[in-house]
Design a protein around this nucleic acid. Structure first.
Lengths: 124, 124
DNA sequence: ATTGTTAATGATAATCATTATCATTAACTT
DNA sequence: AAGTTAATGATAATGATTATCATTAACAAT
């Protein structure tokens, strides 16, 4: 059930994310969309971020602090600055896994790799 | 400054984490340590988890829901079940990166790789 | 051993991101 | 045009984590 209907708010959230290359929090998306659509509510932004993620149209990036969102769903990785908490894209070519982007000028001190799926119990 | 002093509560938290192979939340560590030390406070558990992590004695695992902790700091990766949110260890040998542990009986449907460090601005 | 300093604690209030609620609005169906 | 119900906006609730603060206890100096 729960047929999806069209919504200008959802369009605006998606369009905002697709037009930017930082990795905004829900609050930041809200502030940005609000400029074009002053009546939009923060709850609507949260709702649509969740919905768009479940539709596979955007990515949610879980970090130590607030969640961040990415409108570009092609396969790439991320870098979080431990100091300012900014998130940057790391485009790493499959054929040369360990080469960082030429324009990356930070220092990498660690990484975390998490796999997702279903455990043996929940698989059934 | 802030010289570290000995504390039985901190010892108990570390010992609890080192003795188990699940990946408990702060609340779960609290409940477990409380059995041996009924007077310990949840705030003390949070404080010591943070302190032990900054000392490099335990790992904090950031997931979609509550943070989880790991008393075993050797290099290994993790798996989160999307259904029950349990976290399992994935010991992946450096020499055979893509082979999963023989006893892993779940399904992997995705992964996320995050790098940490300092961005060009914060490096200075 | 006694005292002084201050880190650590326990209890609890505060914070803050996210979710739930609910009356109203608007998208789509007939 | 009318009916159904998904989506919205406003706001309350939730829940994990952190901050506060008076008290306790570690450790150094006496």
């Amino acid at each position: 059930m729960a047929t999806l209907r069209h919504s200008n708010q959802r369009d605006a959230v998606l369009k905002d994310l697709q037009a930017r290359y930082d990795h905004p929090t829900a609050e930041e998306v809200y502030l940005s969309v609000k400029k074009e659509m002053p009546s939009i509510s923060l709850a609507t932004v949260y709702r649509n971020l969740k919905l768009l993620e479940s539709e596979g149209l955007i990515l949610k990036i879980t970090t130590g602090d607030s969640d961040r969102f990415d409108g570009h769903t092609h396969s790439h990785y991320h870098f979080t600055c431990n100091d300012c908490m900014k998130v940057l894209d790391l485009e790493i070519a499959d054929t040369d896994f360990c080469t960082l982007p030429r324009d990356f000028d930070g220092v990498i001190t660690g990484h975390s790799l998490m796999f997702f799926g279903l455990c043996s119990k929940c698989k059934k």
